[in-house]
Amino acid sequence: MLILNQQNLQQIAKSIRLNIIKSGFNCKAPTHYASSLSCVEILTYLYSYLIKPNNTSTANKFILSKGHAALDLYSCLKEFNYISQDELMTYNLNGSHISCQGTYNPKIGIEMSSGSLGMGLSFAIGKALAFIKQHQEDRKIYVLLGNGECNEGMTLEALMFIGAHKLKQICIIVDQNAMQLDGKSSTVLEIKSWQNLFSGFGIKAFECEGHDFNSLNDAFTKAQNTDSPCAIIANTTKGKGVSFMENNNDWHHKLLTQDQYEEAITQLEAQSYEL
C-alpha cells in the first residue's frame, strides 16, 4: 500500500477548495459549490497517484460522470498544472471553454462532455473495450458517479454490461453524499443497499470515508488488487469544508454574496491540514 504524504494531500485539497470558491465567486453566477466540495479528496487522491492526463498513450483515464462537480475537476486540473490560473478564472464566464458542465477536451484531461447524468459509465465501457482491443488490458478507467445520478436508468444498463463482461478496467467511485437537488436521497429515491446494487451485477464494492485519505487509500488499493470490476462507495458530506454549505441543499446551485465569499475563504484558510 502507498505511504501517503498526508500533509501534502491535505494542502492540495485545501488549495482546490479555495480554487472552487474563488473561481465560482468570480463568475458572479449561481453554481454547483456543494457537489464540487463533496469530492475534493477523491480527485486529490486520483490526480496525486492514478491519473496523469498528458500521458495519453498508456495512461489511466478519469471520467467525471457527475458533471455537476466540473468546478472541482477544473480546480484540481489547475492544482496539478494542466490548466493555468488565468484559464481557471474564466470558469462559467460567457463563451469560456471552462464551462459550468465539463466540455470534451481530452488534451487537458476532460475525457467526456458531461452534465446530463448517468452517461459516463457507458462511455467508460467503450474506452475499456478499446483498451482490450488494443492489448492494453492493464489501463484503468476511474468513473466518478454521484449518488443521485444513479437514479438514471442508463446507469443500470451499464452496470449490467460491466458485470457480465467482467470489465476489470473499470473502477466506479460513488460520491455518496446522500443528497440530490430535492433534498436527502433517502426521501427522494432511496437506494436500499449500495453493496447489493453492485454485487447483484457481479461488481465488487468497497466502502470508505471519502474525506479521509487513509480510508480512500485503503479502498483504492483493494480496488487495484481486484481482478474484477469494482466500485468504491465513498461516504462524503455535500458542501464539505464550508460550514454553511455542509449538508445544506440550498448550496446545490447558488450565488455567493460578498460576505459569504469572505466567510468561506476565512474558514478554508483557517483549516490547517485537518478537515
Partner: peptide
Amino acid sequence: IVNVGIAEQNMLGIAAGLASEGF
C-alpha cells in the same frame, strides 16, 4: 463486434467511448 443486449442508450454511449479511442 459487441452485443450490449436490449439497451440502445448504453449501446450508443459505448459506441461513443470506442470512437473516442480511435475506432
